[in-house]
Simulated scan of single mutants.
Amino acid sequence: MAGLPSVLLATCTALLALAAPSLAGDPDMLQDLCVADYKSLEGPLRLNGFPCKRLENMTANDFFSDMLSLPGNTGNPVGSAVTAANVEKVPGLNTLGVSMSRVDYAPWGMNPPHTHPRATEILFVLEGSLGVGFITTTGKLFARTVCKGGVFVIPRGLVHFQKNNGGVPAVAISAFNSQLPGTQSLTEAMLAAFPMEPTDVLVRALQIDGGAPVHVV
């Protein structure tokens, strides 16, 4: 009986070690197919995915999209556009734990600092040259130039960015190990929350004066 606590501790440790890989992405699927049935949703609440269509109602089109073939509109202040092929756009991705995005960059445009809380990203530069980087939780910056044909990996949940290094448009394709990676822009999180964050919080966090609150529309 004296050794029982040690046995329990070892067992718990082993179980935690086995469970750790499941934290790296979406939960594993338990069936061959689970095409998202958008029509059966009666409210915004869902648990790790959409309800499944009945097998007889599935078609090949549920697994197809040509949306990444079209360039996004980069005529905006930051000079970039993200086109996401995730489970909300491609129903066949439901429960598969993967998705992709196309990012178009105007000359000298950038994809501002943001995070994907639910996925690791691997970015492939299709055209042009990008400055790409991410920042660790200890404040270490990993950044470099990635030219056409190169890839760059961004660990899950870390703040990262891309900027076009040239005077011509650039294009990149990103792959994620989540059907819905989520994107949180740092600027919008700080300045465009609703209701607004308290001004004194922003003043102290950003080390600015206490004038009129700044709000991004």
Rank of each mutant, 00 (worst) to 15 (best):
G128E: 01
E197V: 14
G139H: 09
L141A: 01
F134Y: 15
T11V: 06
F64H: 04
L202Y: 00
N86M: 10
L68E: 14
H114F: 09
A205K: 08
Q184S: 14
G128R: 01
R156I: 12
L96E: 10
V153I: 04
K163Q: 15
L180T: 11
E88N: 14
F194L: 00
E127D: 07
A143Y: 07
A170K: 01
S99L: 12
L9Y: 03
A170Q: 01
E56D: 13
A81Q: 04
H160V: 11
N48M: 09
S185N: 08
L96M: 14
L70E: 03
V78I: 10
L30D: 03
K163Y: 15
V159K: 10
S99V: 06
Q179T: 13
A205P: 07
T95D: 05
G139A: 08
T183I: 14
V171F: 01
M1N: 12
E197W: 15
Q162W: 02
F152M: 05
L47N: 10
L180D: 15
A119H: 08
V78S: 11
L130G: 02
M58A: 01
E88D: 11
V78Q: 06
T59L: 07
I208F: 06
L202C: 00
K148S: 02
V216H: 08
A106W: 05
L41C: 07
M67W: 04
A14L: 10
N94R: 05
S40Q: 15
E127Y: 08
V132K: 11
I173V: 10
I208W: 03
P181Q: 08
Q179I: 13
P91D: 00
N76E: 11
G128Y: 03
N61M: 14
C34P: 13
V168Y: 01
G167P: 03
V216Q: 11
A189I: 05
V214L: 15
I122S: 05
W108T: 04
R204Y: 02
A143C: 08
L41P: 00
L45P: 08
L4V: 11
T59Q: 06
I208A: 04
G79V: 05
W108Y: 13
N48L: 14
F134Q: 09
P27I: 12
E56V: 05
V125T: 03
M190T: 12
L55K: 15
L30F: 04
V98W: 14
P195S: 05
P195I: 02
V153Y: 03
G25T: 04
N73L: 11
Q184D: 12
E188C: 05
L158Y: 09
L70A: 13
G72D: 00
L23I: 09
V125Y: 05
T115E: 08
V171K: 00
S174D: 12
P5I: 00
L130K: 03
V103A: 15
N61C: 14
T187P: 03
P112V: 04
S99R: 13
V159T: 14
L16A: 15
L70C: 06
L47Y: 08
T95C: 00
L9Q: 02
T120S: 10
V151P: 09
G211W: 10
L130I: 00
T120C: 07
V203Q: 00
A19Y: 07
R54E: 15
D62K: 00
N165E: 06
I208S: 06
A24V: 13
L191V: 00
V203P: 02
G210N: 04
V87K: 13
G79L: 08
L23M: 06
G166K: 13
L158F: 11
N48Y: 05
T95G: 04
L70P: 06
